[in-house]
């Protein structure tokens, strides 16, 4: 498949550069997911944007998922798109609370990270303006965590 060839090149280049810092590479239904260690999160994305074989110039989405039974309970997930090479990649990492912000790489990460902070409580180090966006400023708690009830606390 044409998509898989250019993505195979990307995965090879990532493995060359980061080696042990990549925890896993998986593929499901034509989508490739790469899991990094949180220490190389910012460096990996700078490489993915600037390297001419990868050329991921647009960030589509940045979000998180909550696995409360794990010690590193949050999974931070990023979807990337390259307009020139026409391929997509999903990158993941895991953290308990802090993760470096990707705003220096793509400016669109600004609101994605504010929303993830608002709903999950993950703190992005280096974000220029981290405050709540979808809920009121004085809201307590982080609704999308698995231990927050759907109906909230004051129905």
């Amino acid at each position: 498949m044409p998509m898989q060839d250019s993505l195979q090149v990307v995965v090879d280049r990532l493995k060359d550069k980061f080696g042990d810092n990549i925890l896993s590479v998986s593929e499901f239904r034509d989508e490739v997911t790469v899991r990094f260690k949180p220490e190389v999160w910012l460096e990996a994305h700078t490489f993915l944007k600037e390297d001419p074989d990868c050329a991921f110039n647009m960030m589509i989405d940045e979000t998180a998922a909550d696995y409360p039974l794990r010690p590193d309970r949050f999974d931070v997930i990023c979807h990337l798109l390259s307009l020139d090479k026409r391929h997509r990649l999903r990158t993941k990492t895991q953290t308990v609370e802090h993760i470096p912000s990707l705003v220096p790489v793509w400016r669109t990460a600004n609101w994605h990270e504010r929303e993830t902070y608002d709903l999950f409580g993950i703190i992005y180090d280096g974000h220029p303006d981290l405050r709540r966006i979808l809920l009121t400023e004085d809201w307590e708690g982080f609704p999308l965590r698995k231990d927050y009830p759907v109906e909230g606390y004051d129905m």
């Binding site: 589509i60 989405d61 979000t63 998922a65 909550d66 997930i77 979807h79 669109t108 600004n110 609101w111 994605h112 929303e115």
Partner: peptide, 27 residues
Amino acid sequence: LGFYLISDGSSRPYRMKIRGPSYVNLQ
């Protein structure tokens, strides 16, 4: 417009994320 679904093998999604274009465009 994108829907990102994480499934854990049951009949309900574990996590559904909606990538709404208006949210990103408004930024």
